[in-house]
Structures are given as C-alpha cells and as structure tokens.
Design a protein around this nucleic acid. Structure first.
Length: 861
RNA sequence: GCCGGGAUGGCGGAAUCGGUAGACGCACCGGACUCAAAAUCCGGCGUUGGAGACAAUGUGGGGGUUCGAGUCCCCCUCCCGGCACCA
C-alpha cells in the first residue's frame, strides 16, 4: 500500500484496469434494437469533437471533463452509457500549416490526431475508443457525399451565385477570418466582393420546423433557444411594390421591397437598393460618379459585423419610383448598408421611424415625415408641441433626435399624417394598408425569415469533395453511388494561391456519368460544418458500410447530453438540427411512422445541451522599443502581493525585471497566456486537472486559470489519500450500523454528512459541479474533525464511501484505487450512487432567526 | 450596429421559492512544529468605527416594487460570446 499520493502510478494503474476490463465499451442490446431493455436506460453523452490542431488546450480539457463527469455519474446510476470521441479533421488550419511548414494537410492532420489522442487518453476519459470517427477519412465522408446526391436530386441542394471575399493578388477566396481590416492576411491586398456560383442547402425550407421544434427542447438553455429563434427571425410583414416612374427609368415594372412596418408606408420618403441591384446597374450606365460609388461598395469583405458598423453611405440614382398608395414620386438611392443577399436587395426608407433611415436621411438631407404618434398625441407632431398641424413633409432639421427616439420604433402609437389611415393603431393600419396594396396588386402580407440558405461551396483543398460532375450537355450530374466516394487526393502541395484541386487534371478530368462525354469534376469542397452536422449519428454505428448509419442509431439516438462551447450556440447547433431533419426525411433512420414523426426525441438530435464557458487566464507583457507588446506566458512570471494579498506588481522569473499586468482574457496564442494541460497532468496528475476545472467555476461560466488553485486541488486529493490510509483500519472493519445507538456528537456528524450529500445530489442534478467538489471538501473536513475526537468505524466507513462515490466522476483514478484498497468493492464504477438517509436528517433542535423590518435582530436555539 | 450573456471580499465562486450575503477553495496575516526553510497543523480574514460586546455600511452605477431585494421591474456603464468562409 502506498502511503504517499503518487498520481502518476495510480492513474496509470486505473487506466490499465479500465482498458483491460473494457469498462467503457458501449454495447447496445442485440435483439429488437428499437425496444431495448427498459431496465437499463441508455445514456448517450457527447462532447463536441475537437479540431486536431496539434495540442490539447484547456478548453478541451474542460469540455471533456464535463462530459466525462456526466458519463461516469450516469454509469454509476445504472445507465447504459455511450461516450464516443472523434476528430473534426477537415479545415483551414491544416492548409495554413501546409503553407507554413510545407507539409501535406493530411499528414499534418493525422500526426496531430495521434498526439491529441494520447493526450486525451491521459485524462482518463470514460470514452469508447472503438467508436472513433475521423471526418477526413473516405469511409466517413463518402456517406456525406451520398447524402449530398440524394438532396441534390430532391432539390434541397441547389446552385446560385453568392458573394465571397476575393484576394485580387493571391487570386484566392478568403475566409472572413483571413480578412483583416479589409485586406488579405497574406497579400495585404484590398479585398473585394466577388460573385461566384455555389451550392446551397435549402435550410429555409425547414425554417418553420427549426423554429417550432425549439419549443420541444426542454433540456436546452433558454439563452441558446432565444439566440436560435432570433437568428431564424420569423417576421410578419408585407411585400410592397413601388411602380417604376417611366419618365426617369424608361421601363415598366416595379421595385419590390419587404417591410415589417407597412403601417409606416405613408412615411416612406425614399428607397434604397444594394450596389448589386439591377436598378443600380441601370442607373450607373451613364453616370461615372455612381459607377465609382458602386465599385466602392463592392470593396471590403462580406462579414455582417463590418457591414453593420461601417459608415452609412449612399448616392442618388436619379431614378424615381411611385408610392403605391399616394402615387408620390420617391427617389431611389444606392446605399452600402442594403445587402443584395437579404430579401429583395432593396428597402423602403421611413426616416421618421427607423434609426438607420433617420441617420441616412439626416446625412443626405432627405425628407423625414412622421406618420406615427403616441396615443393621445394624434394631431400634433412630436418635437413641435405647440404646433398642432405642421405640413406633412417635415425637414429633418425640424425633427429633433430626441423626438424621433421617442417614436421611431413605436408600435404602440397611432397613424398621423396618413390620410385615411389616421388614428389607426399598428395592427389596424397594418391590415388596412395590406388590404389596399393587395387590391391594387402592389403588395400582400408575407411571413419572412431572417435565416438564409446555407452556402457550402469552398474553393479550398482540405475538405470533402462535392460529388458533382459538370457536363457540357447534361449539366450538373451527381456522382452515381457506385463511383462514391470521390476521394480527396492526399498527396498535394498547398501554396495559398488558388485551389489545389483546380490545378489537378487527374482529379477533375472525368467522363460524364450520364452521357460518357468529357466532363469536369467539381473542384470545390464542402464547408466543414457539414461533417460536424452528422457525426453524432455516425458514432452509433461508426463501422457501418451500408449507409450513414444502421439500426444501432435507433437505439442510441438522440444524444441524451451534448456538451460544448457557447460559441457554437447558433451555427453548428442549428446546422446539426437541420441535418437531423434532412436525414430523417431521406429515410436514413429507417421508415418513420407518423407517431414517431411527432415524437420530439425523433426530430431533434440533442435532448439536453450544456454550453460551457471559456477558459481565461491573466496576461503579462512588456512594451518593446517599437511600441509593440511582447506577451509573456504566466508560467514565466512571478506576481508580488502586498500584506493584504493584493497584487502589487509582477516580474519575469528569468531576469527579475518588472512586467506589466494586462487583462484576464481567453487563453490564446496571440496573448501567450495559454497554459499547457499536459504540463499540469505531468506535474499533478489528471485527477488534479479535472478537479480544478470542475471546482473553479460552474460549467457554463468563464473559468479563470489559477496555478495556486491547481495546487489547492492537488492538496485536497492528497488529504483524501492521507485520511484514507490513516483511517484504513477502522474503515475496513465495516462496523455494524445502529443509528439509534449514536451519541449526540455522532448523530451530529452523521447529520452533517447526509445534509452535505443531499445538497450535492441536488447540485449534480443541475450540472453544478463546482459545489459538488465543495461538498466533497466539506465531507472530508467533517470526517477529519470527527475522527479527531473519536473513532466510529461504521460512521467513518459510511462517510468515506459517500465521499469516494461523490468524487468518483470528477477524480476517477484516486477514487478507483481507494475504493479497492479500503475493501468497498472491486470497481467503484459499479457502485451505486450514494443515497441520503432521511432518518439522519431528523433534528432535535433548530436555529430560529429573528428579523425585524427585514433586518437580522436575533438568533434563537 | 444587431442578437445573447455577465458583473458579489484581494481572487475564483456560494446563497434551490424574495427571507441570516460571502459556503468551499485560493491569496494574505498570526501561531505551532523546525537549527532554518518547505510541507503540514491550529487560528484570523468584506469595509469603517470600537479595547470589546457591538454599531453602521456593503452584491457594477442610478431609480422603483416590497415588512424584507444579490435575487423582481425600469434606465445606464463596462466586459464577454455570436453575426452566416475560424472551428
């Protein structure tokens, strides 16, 4: 028996044991998959799989520890647990590494996977490694390609042009991340928007279902559901057509816009179109200034955040349209804030009741016409309280910002200055104006979504090839099943200029599968979000060679608990939900009866969701002579404190000279504030790393890294070890328990133990693991205090068994070793979860708190 | 800019339903042990005043509801995540 706590040996032995026993091998009942043995419910616990960047970072450790705690907790509670792991292996960083180090992306990726797998294993995760999935392998992505062809045939995937960031020097499409201050990250060239053909998933066809089914996700954080609802953005509005003014435009037809505020239609004073809009192109023909402006609008990247924060600019086209109800001539402007990709690429502007329109109108001297006033204020116009009847057209100078702020987005007001609509409230005006538009055939009510279709074409090498062949006679032909997978050649040179596949005739020169004529294979690859949209299903049957999944998926799906970063709250989680519905509708999960179709657990992939916060750490730096900051790793720095423990300064360990203390930020390479998990595991062991991670913050909050906090976690585990060995003889006697015969002091100790357990069981059911750790510490404190005065074998035995089992999911190695050593059983994984003895919680006396006017005034016993 | 979060001692955090604010840990201070240090153990620790009992004050800022607010409502500030090609 070891008297000293030696995590390295203890952890290696425990991992060896689990490996030999295949403790985490997840097995589905073999007969009647769909109606599995109800006595052992299944629990599929999934953590978001890592991108194989090369090294584990603290975010991974946190993510996988949370998943592991949940897995082990459920295993001890009698669930049939499956916890898989895999690799989100396609993506941009592999190409960047290829350019920087002249190594093929495949080689780099596989080496990283090997390194990170070893690191993950050292954490002692209860993972079934036989289910490992790697998305860059043909046996995985061939089924993605298969699904693509089915969806293409069904029209769920279609082709259209879309804007991308174009680097005119490197002749390469750039990701938003690669555009820095409007310039290409490598070339430094000003980036421009370029329209290219791309394949799209028609996710908008599922918008209604994706929105409605959020209501069935009781196990998701409200915050995430709200974000998804807003992202999908269902709105009730009107299509409105503004007929062209024939004199200025020389054409028939109308300019179509969508608005959620048809009640303000009488206040429209101009229209704005995107730079790419046909009307803008027409107006620019004989207008060099407008041509220049349109060119200017096309400069810069495609990121929405940039669009929304840039200075609003516009230019008059000189063209007019007619107001559909009043017939008034309204000018048409080109504006850089109108996006061609949204709706119709044109908007009606109501400066009096829209903040952005108001700023624009003020800047360019366009008229502002108020048409909504607060209830009871009809007949007078805000900002001019003494003037009951101003002319309909107000200049912006008469219309103060404050007055506008009061009323601009006011749906509680009533119409003014709106002719026959005066006095109508929002809903009445909405209906009346929509009816009048419909009668004139110039508009109708319409439900619209903010959600846009998902463009998945990437002009990049390291991704899943799009299984399409372009034939001059047959058009876009999906690759037939027999020719799948379209294998991505792995031995390539990546230069960062253009797409490697487009330079490989041996890849793209192919015969047409339909007519046999010469054709060209698509050289774009898919967005890596596609792979991560269905991997959760693949884990159920990772070796399946007949489809995406087989019948085993019916047993394991849906995922019972999904764990991952909050940064995935919208895109990844929405795409995966979408994919689940696609797979269902293609029949991937087998024939779906109507009853199953209405079953939420069949329509959604993730029953419960836990979004974890980031891992952050302090930053330290020195100013270099050129004014730039030299970031120093926290491990290289000593922080000095005053007598009260407040930090007074910091010095570099190597030279003893001062460094500047920066903010506490997300661990990153750029700020050099990352702490290598491997170093922590090597020094203190995986149990300490896991314990600290779980203790330092609740899972959904940010976690601040602290070296001394890690030491504290280590100290606690050592105390557990020392206590166990000091008390081993008593604990092992397993004395008979007679709760009625306990002394007052023994009763009080047992009360404390069960009171702590009760709280801990409540906390763990809420995923609040930090207070579960705290409970373990309290249990040890209680046991230590108690055994100072007396020994009671049965009580020590019971108390310590509670402590070990409560701690087991968090620090599995040490608890595994002690459970066996103290003779509790062969394997703590098979031990039952500790239960509160309510009899222990009966109290003879209580504290009574006296409050007077809400203030504490006394305490009675 | 838009959407979603967050803010509690020197620090991380706790407070389940609106009812004793600061559990648990870290840091720090004092003591024991030691030739000494480390480790360990014991004690203290929001702020202000007081020798003390105690009193006042205190959960980012301002206002409100309530017998009573960290918790509910309104306004504001700062920080973080996402914004469709980072994953």
């Amino acid at each position: 028996m070891h008297q000293n706590y030696t995590p390295k040996e203890i952890e290696a032995a425990a991992q060896q044991y689990w490996n030999n026993e295949q403790s985490f091998r997840a097995v589905e009942p073999t007969e009647k998959l769909a109606s599995a043995d109800p006595s052992k419910p299944k629990y599929y616990c999934l953590s978001m799989f890592p991108y194989p960047s090369g090294k584990l970072h603290m975010g991974h450790v946190r993510n996988y520890t949370i998943g592991d705690v949940l897995s082990r907790y459920h295993k001890m509670r009698g669930f049939n647990v499956m916890q898989p792991m895999g690799w989100d292996a396609f993506g941009l960083p592999a190409e960047n590494a290829a350019i920087a180090n002249n190594v093929a992306p495949a080689k780099w990726t596989y080496a990283n996977i090997d390194a990170m797998r070893a690191q993950l294993k050292s954490l002692g995760l209860a993972v079934d490694w036989s289910r490992e999935v790697t998305t860059c392998k043909p046996e995985y992505y061939r089924w993605e390609q298969w699904l693509f062809t089915r969806l293409f045939e069904r029209g769920i995937i279609y082709k259209k042009t879309a804007s991308v960031n174009w680097d005119p020097v490197d002749h390469t499409v750039l990701a938003n991340e690669q555009v820095i201050d409007g310039r290409g990250w490598r070339s430094g060239a000003l980036v421009e928007k370029r329209d290219i053909p791309m394949y799209f998933f028609r996710i908008t066809h599922y918008a209604e279902e994706l929105l409605a089914d959020l209501d069935t996700l009781d196990g998701w954080p409200e915050q995430v559901k709200t974000m998804q609802r807003n992202w999908i953005g269902k709105s009730y509005g009107c299509d409105v057509s503004f007929p062209y003014d024939k004199v200025s435009t020389g054409t028939e037809g109308a300019l179509k816009v969508y608005t959620t505020r048809p009640d303000t239609l009488m206040g429209a004073t101009y229209l704005a179109v995107a730079a790419e809009h046909a009307l803008a192109t027409q107006a620019a023909k004989n207008n060099p200034a407008l041509t220049n402006f349109i060119e200017e609008c096309k400069r810069g990247g495609t990121a929405e955040a940039d669009m929304a924060t840039m200075e609003k600019k516009g230019m008059d086209t000189g063209l007019f349209v007619l107001h559909p109800l009043s017939g008034e001539k309204l000018p048409v402007w080109v504006a850089n804030y109108v996006l061609m990709g949204y709706g119709e690429g044109a908007v009606m502007a109501v400066p009096a009741h829209d903040e952005r329109d108001f700023e624009f109108a003020k800047k360019y001297g366009l008229p502002v016409k108020q048409v909504i006033a607060g209830k009871g204020e009809e007949g007078r116009v805000k900002g001019e309280s003494s003037a009951p009847h101003l002319p309909f057209s107000l200049l912006s100078s008469l219309f103060t910002t404050e007055a506008w702020q009061d009323s601009y987005a006011n749906k509680d007001g009533v119409c003014v200055n709106s002719g026959k609509y005066d006095g109508l409230d929002f809903q009445a005006a909405f209906d009346a104006i929509a009816d009048d538009l419909a009668a004139k055939n110039l508009g109708e009510k319409k439900v619209q979504f903010r959600l846009r279709d998902w463009g998945i074409s990437r002009q990049r090498y390291w991704g899943c090839p799009i299984p399409i062949i372009h034939c001059p006679t047959c058009g876009d032909v999906p690759v037939p099943d027999a020719q799948l997978p379209v294998v991505l050649p792995e031995d390539v040179t990546v230069t960062g200029i253009g797409s490697p596949l487009a330079k490989m005739p041996e890849f793209y020169q192919v015969p047409c599968p339909k007519c046999g004529g010469a054709a060209r294979r698509e050289t774009d690859t898919m967005d890596t979000f596609v792979e991560s949209s269905w991997y959760y299903a693949r884990y159920a049957s990772p070796d399946c060679t007949t489809g995406l999944v087989d019948a085993r998926a019916q047993y394991w799906l849906p995922v019972d608990q999904y764990v991952g970063g909050i940064e995935h709250a919208i895109l990844h989680l929405l795409y995966a939900r979408f994919f689940h519905k696609l797979m269902r509708d293609v029949g991937v999960f087998g024939d779906v009866s109507a009853a199953q179709h209405n079953n939420p657990s069949f329509n959604e992939p993730f029953k419960n969701l836990l979004t974890q916060g980031m891992v952050i750490a302090p930053t330290f730096y020195r100013e270099k002579s050129n004014g730039k900051k030299l970031w120093l790793n926290p491990a290289e720095v000593n922080v000095a404190t005053d007598a009260k423990g407040r930090p007074t300064g910091a010095v570099l360990k190597t030279d003893g000279q001062p460094v500047i203390i920066g903010g506490t930020e997300k661990m990153s390479k750029s700020k050099n504030n990352g702490v290598d998990p491997q170093a922590i595991i090597d020094q203190y062991g995986a149990d300490t790393a896991r314990l600290f991670m779980m203790f330092a913050a609740p899972p959904d909050q940010q976690l601040e890294w602290s070296d001394s906090g890690v030491e504290g976690a280590y100290r606690f585990l050592r105390r557990v070890w020392v206590f166990a060995h000091g008390q081993a003889d008593h604990i092992k006697t397993h004395g008979h328990f007679d709760s009625a015969a306990l002394s007052a002091e023994q009763k009080s100790a047992r009360f404390k133990l069960h009171e702590i357990l009760k709280q801990a069981n409540f906390d763990i059911s809420k995923n609040q693991f930090n207070t579960v750790v705290s409970a373990c510490m309290k249990l040890l404190n209680t046991l230590e205090d108690f055994t100072k005065h007396e020994t009671h074998a049965a009580l020590a035995n019971e108390g310590f068994s509670i402590l070990l089992r409560l701690l087991a999911p968090i620090a599995p190695h040490i608890t595994h070793a002690l459970w066996i050593e103290l003779g509790y059983g062969a394997d703590i994984l098979n031990a039952p979860w500790p239960q509160v003895d309510e009899a222990a919680l009966v109290q003879d006396e209580i504290d009574l708190v006296i409050q007077v006017n809400g203030k504490l005034r006394g305490n009675l016993r």
